[in-house]
Amino acid sequence: MALATRTDRRPSLPRTVWDSTVGKKTVMAVSGLIMLLYLVAHMIGNLKIFFGPGDFNHYAHWLRTLGAPVMRWEWTLWVVRVGLVAAVVAHAVSAYQLSRRDIRARPSKYVHNKPRASYATRTMRWGGIILGLFIVWHILDLTTGTVHPGGYEHLHPYQNVIDTFSTWYGNVIYITAVVALGFHVRHGFWSAAQTLGVGNATRDRALKTCANGLALLLTAGFASVPIGVMTGVVS
């Protein structure tokens, strides 16, 4: 064995990723994209409400039989739930640690201060907190029924959705959250592309258009449900 020729052992891959700001941003980008994919599927599912209770409730039932006969009742759903919780936790923990670091790195403000970054960019942290709180309320409302207004009935999502959006606060919370989501995705999707090294000068316009399109699509798609209930299109 050669002596002392290999003295600089590098840390393991997970250690390198988690200890580095670039690596932690990668964790944020990947977990964010996983959540984004889920949101697109979730929005498409939500829009089935416009085809009536039969379609919507059947879709909810199908979600629980997904993957049968390999997967038993709700197995696939639980796999997705566990994956999403992991993504939310990874995203939030990275965001918290990176934000702490960022704030420490700029302890004194300029006397002559002017905000320049776009609204979406400046509100990523508060937007993220709003979305986190929303997810908690949303699950307690429509998954567990704990804070649901009126009688929550499992596997009857059509009526449950109408109950929620028949209250003024249900509409306010939901629409605020989907608007926050739009802003978050607008900066987040494009940022994720930069973090993963996909962005370059030629692709920049396409990536920005894609981010804005996704943000608009998700906000409009999700907001259409409470608006549908409010206007009586869904009843």
């Binding site: 700001t21 932690k24 670091r101 960022d102 420490r104 790195a105 960019t121 973090t195």
Partner: peptide, 16 residues
């Protein structure tokens, strides 16, 4: 990148 982090610089949030 390791040295940059060790110096106490913040992370990138792509504000531009």
């Amino acid at each position: 990148v390791t040295q940059m982090d060790a110096e106490g610089f913040g992370g990138c949030t792509l504000t531009g």
